[in-house]
């Protein structure tokens, strides 16, 4: 018996946004300002001090804006914080951001 053939369509949907251009990188971190973003979890309170110490040893002029400045970027007030984050990062003269560190 010959089997029926099915002509089928695609079950996904069109992507809303295409690839986004990545921000330019810095030549080195000396004299740069690094902003920290955190969800206040996954040992951030231990991790960020270790990162600061390590980077400062290699780049003595590096400056940090600590994550407490910005609030919890993945918490109950996330939407409000994210809405003003770009402006805040500009205000602090941010050259680079550390974010998305999880466990």
């Amino acid at each position: 018996m010959k089997e029926i053939g099915y002509k089928v369509v695609w079950p996904l949907g069109k992507r809303i946004a295409g690839p986004v251009a990545l921000a330019p990188r810095v030549a080195n971190l000396s004299g740069k300002t690094i902003c920290e973003l955190s969800d206040y979890g996954f040992r951030a309170e231990e991790m960020f001090p270790l990162i600061r110490t390590s980077l400062s040893r290699r780049y003595p002029e590096v400056k940090f804006i600590e994550y407490g400045t910005f609030g919890n970027t993945h918490g109950p007030q996330e939407n409000e914080i994210i809405a003003t984050l770009a402006e805040q990062l500009r205000q602090y003269g941010c050259d680079a951001v550390i974010s998305g560190v999880g466990g």
């Binding site: 053939g5 002509k7 369509v9 992507r15 990545l22 990188r25 030549a27």
Partner: peptide
């Protein structure tokens, strides 16, 4: 962290062209 801040990442590919909603993407048996 240092590598991510100071190294140029590989270029992003434009990706494969995806089908249109009503386009037949395959024909075959069950």
């Amino acid at each position: 962290i240092i590598h991510a801040f100071t190294s140029k990442p590989a270029g992003q590919s434009a990706g494969l062209r995806e089908p249109e909603p009503e386009q037949i993407v395959f024909q075959g048996t069950l």
